[in-house]
């Protein structure tokens, strides 16, 4: 499988994603500069974390108009797999590929720590390697991860099982205390209705090897790779 990792000015988790795809999972992987206008030959596109365009105006707002994002939209509309992690998730919402918006954390602080999320739906390409209800220990690192959408959108996400990951306690309880940033419904990750675009604030690419502190992020890649085997 061939992964493409988009590099915006200010991306800083691109190397982690590349390392996970290429070295941990032994797949083909290439960086794609944001000025590129073709995504031919790629099976899965990752929009990595970071601070594209310095987070100016709003997170992801300017990156959304990078030339490559138009190609990502076309690629996604053709059914291609797209993952947005952290800043990548913010860009996907700004681009309208996923609903809602990631606002400033409720506590106003940048939060960099390991948290717990519960897998709410494992009937997706990205989460099929997990059990439903499985608790994952995954790091977050963001100042703007407070997921917001209007009531109708939240209801639609709930009804269609598009909420994939929720912030939880270590035991899997969905509580306010377990919610690090004020996200509505403890939302940490969602998927589009068609099931080929996944966005999440936690960083699975950072926990794919025990030497780096954990392996709970592996399932995301394993789910995708099961398509090609």
């Amino acid at each position: 499988m061939k992964f493409g990792i988009i590099v915006f000015p200010g991306s800083n988790c691109d190397h982690d994603c590349y390392h996970a795809a290429k070295h941990v999972f032994g797949q083909e992987a290439e960086y794609i500069w944001h000025k590129e206008t073709s995504l031919q030959g790629f099976d899965c596109i990752i929009l990595p974390g970071g601070f594209s365009y310095g987070d100016y105006l709003r997170t992801g707002a300017i990156a959304r108009f990078s030339p490559v994002v138009n190609e990502v939209i076309k690629f996604a509309n053709r059914g291609g797999l797209v993952i947005g992690i952290c800043n990548g998730f913010q860009i996907l919402t700004e681009a309208g590929l996923l609903p809602g918006v990631l606002m400033r954390n409720k506590g106003l602080k940048f939060i960099c720590k390991s948290i717990y999320v519960r897998v709410e739906n494992n009937q997706t390409i990205f989460t099929k390697a997990y059990q439903k209800g499985q608790i994952l220990n995954i790091p977050i690192a963001h100042a703007d991860g407070n997921y917001f959408a209007d009531k109708d959108t939240i209801k639609r996400l709930e009804d269609n099982n598009q909420i994939i990951l929720r912030y939880s306690t270590e035991d899997g309880e969905i509580t306010d205390d377990a919610n690090p940033n004020g996200s509505l419904s403890n939302i940490a990750g969602i998927i589009n209705a068609k099931g080929n675009i996944f966005g999440a604030m936690p960083h699975p690419e950072r926990v794919c090897e025990s030497i780096l502190g954990g392996e709970d992020g592996r399932g995301i890649f394993e789910g995708i790779l099961s398509l090609s085997s």
């Binding site: 709003r58 707002a61 300017i62 108009f65 809602g100 918006v101 917001f148 209007d150």
Partner: peptide
Amino acid sequence: KLLANTVV
């Protein structure tokens, strides 16, 4: 298109 995010 850019200056405001009309969701919020």
